[in-house]
Design a protein around this nucleic acid. Structure first.
Lengths: 209, 209
DNA sequence: TAGTCTGTGTGACTTATATCACGGTAGCTG
DNA sequence: CAGCTACCGTGATATAAGTCACACAGACTA
């Protein structure tokens, strides 16, 4: 583990804290598609994303997966913080979207660092605030927007994380948005007519400026 | 302000912390319907609810209000904590549902107490976790449920906070659920047929056991 | 090369919800 | 008491989205 990489990804932490992170964290490598956290699983450590993109889902009783938000390198899984602090179980499903590297910090350090390092406390609070905001944005989308707008937002988010060439099927998108393949297909066709995307087999290219 | 009342509402805090709360907090009395926090307003203090019920909304661009969750006596507005810690503005609308008393604690104490009192840190983290969960539940409802289930959940929540006799119009409910009066009316009629509610003018009585 | 699988495209239909257009009624106010 | 206003009830219709059925095409596999 490279301390300079950590400093770069998580700036503004105290010098001593970087040392602790390196000493007490353990690296986990994930292949694209692998599950990092299952619903109901007990959380024993706080996760920091070092590399790649992690996707968070909410699951319904029949196992349908509803996409909530992404986590990037340099971000922390807030859920793993709250849960970790109380030894509780996960309420969400987290999967690696790309190959990813995460740093697992055993939960006992959460508490210690919180009172010891002001920068850690700031970091945790900021993480929370950001995740909270994302959650509110997600609520806005489903409460106030139609499928066409939601699809547009969704694709833009993907493009932000993965580039303009999205390797995913219509069915994948439908699952994330809790919709159906046919609906997504038709909406994509409309977007294609407006020159926002080009539809390929197994991939979609975002060409809107 | 009665310190014993505070101890009762917020148990498990350290002895010294109660003193600080009483010394530095200021009481705000709100009439039912009054606004506690507007969208875009700068937050300068953390709010603890001492009495009554506060309702949180998300607003869309046209000012439509979508109900997110309630806050009871003994709870804190997590949003006011995150925002306060960073001097940022509110993302939600908070209104007193009943007459209410809140305790405003200037934000500078947030930071101090966080490192000084372990119990405060625990309290804040727990608040977060609970609000986060509520938000996830709200997402579940709109992502996975139809209006009839959502209305049922909504009414149950109201009953929990306010008792079985709900003084609200069909229009009020429609606003909270981002639906329309007619739809709510029809669903309520169905519930009445199933003996779950009795519909009165300006109020609804929950009679389902 | 034929056969199979997975992803895509599309018409027809169903369902949930929203919207429109009324008419009715309780309770208040001049 | 007349008339007003806010609330409630309900049919007709419109729209968005989900479902069903089926056809086709690219890619891989025997």
């Amino acid at each position: 583990m490279d301390i300079n990489n950590i400093k770069h990804l998580f700036p503004n932490l105290e010098e001593g804290l970087y040392g602790e992170i390196v000493n007490h964290g353990t690296i986990k490598e994930l292949k694209a598609g692998e599950t990092l956290l299952k619903v109901g699983q007990t959380i024993r450590s706080t996760m920091l994303i070092l590399n790649g993109v992690v996707k968070l889902y909410r699951e319904d009783d029949e196992g349908k997966e509803f996409f909530i938000y992404h986590l990037d390198a340099g971000q922390a899984c807030s859920l793993s913080m709250v849960c970790a602090a109380k030894h509780e179980t996960s309420e969400v499903l987290a999967k690696a979207l790309t190959d990813a590297t995460v740093l697992a910090i055993p939960l006992e350090f959460m508490d210690q660092w919180m009172s010891k390092y002001k920068s850690w406390y700031q970091f945790v609070i900021t993480s929370y605030r950001n995740r909270f905001e994302e959650l509110l944005t997600t609520i806005d989308a489903i409460a106030f927007s139609n499928m066409d707008e939601r699809l547009e937002d969704y694709l833009k988010k993907q493009v932000n994380k993965l580039g303009t060439n999205l390797k995913m099927t219509h069915q994948d998108i439908a699952n994330d948005l809790n919709s159906s393949r046919e609906v997504i297909n038709r909406l994509l066709k409309k977007m294609e007519a407006k020159n926002w995307v080009v539809i390929h087999r197994n991939s979609i290219e975002w060409i809107k400026k």
